[in-house]
Design a protein around this nucleic acid. Sequence first.
DNA 1: CTTTCGTCCTGACTGC
DNA 2: TGCAGTCAGGACGAAA
Length: 269
Amino acid sequence: MPELPEVEYERRRLQRVMTCARIQRVVTRRANLRYAFPPDFAPRLESQTVVAVRRRAKYLLAELESGDVLLMHLGMSGGFRVADGDAEYDRHDHVIFELSTGAVVIFNDPRRFGFMTLLRADDIESHRALARLGPEPLSARFGAAILARALGRRRTPLKIALSDQRVIAGLGNIYVSEALYRARLSPKRRASTLVTRTGTPRPALDDLVRAIKDVLRVAIRNQYRTRAADPFLVYDREGERCPRRGCGGTITRIVQGGRSTFYCPVCQR
DNA sequence: CTTTCGTCCTGACTGC
DNA sequence: TGCAGTCAGGACGAAA
């Protein structure tokens, strides 16, 4: 479930706890998550100081003083918790970082779709997972022009295109549905119909860009508030009345690419 | 090149 | 009450 807003929230927490701290001890409590840990994972991390914790798409990157980067993905159920000295661990606590400050950072991931690996400074740009990622939706340069280039030749439905991390980085199943709802665009609409034949953005694409940015900004803000409650307008609300004033439609669930999409067939076109 | 599909994993949930 | 079956999700590699 972690998409860009949840990962950004985790980044800010880790940034606060880990920056300037030295990693004293690393414990991997099983041999693999999604992938096996590199054989020298713990030794290479130990005694290094964390310079910063960054985010790219749904990846977290802890930069170390050596220039190496601890690359982390939360998969679908991953998350961190911070304890002081003596923590109790459960069976899904897979990686423990003991810091020089006395804080202990614990990575928990029941479904183990997440992973961690350690990259040499020179390998970061070329890393398989990072090299192909599309633009960051909250960056200043992300706009209709960039998105037009990515969508222009796409024949897939909008929902599928926006879920592709090479088109735009960081959206997942939930926020794609939410953004399309805000933009009043049907998830079934062909991606290329938001772009003219000459490759310039149509007005609907401007709406979509604004909707994506708004939905992500609000979601990041919401992380600090009601993390338990679902603040979603359409996601997982099949059968409910469309919340848009005067619409009267019913939120509908369809399956696209093997995943659920939620939308209002009345106001999303 | 683009697009689709199966796979990994566990917990929550449904139905008998 | 128990147990089998289904579903959810992100990324990736294989196949079309």
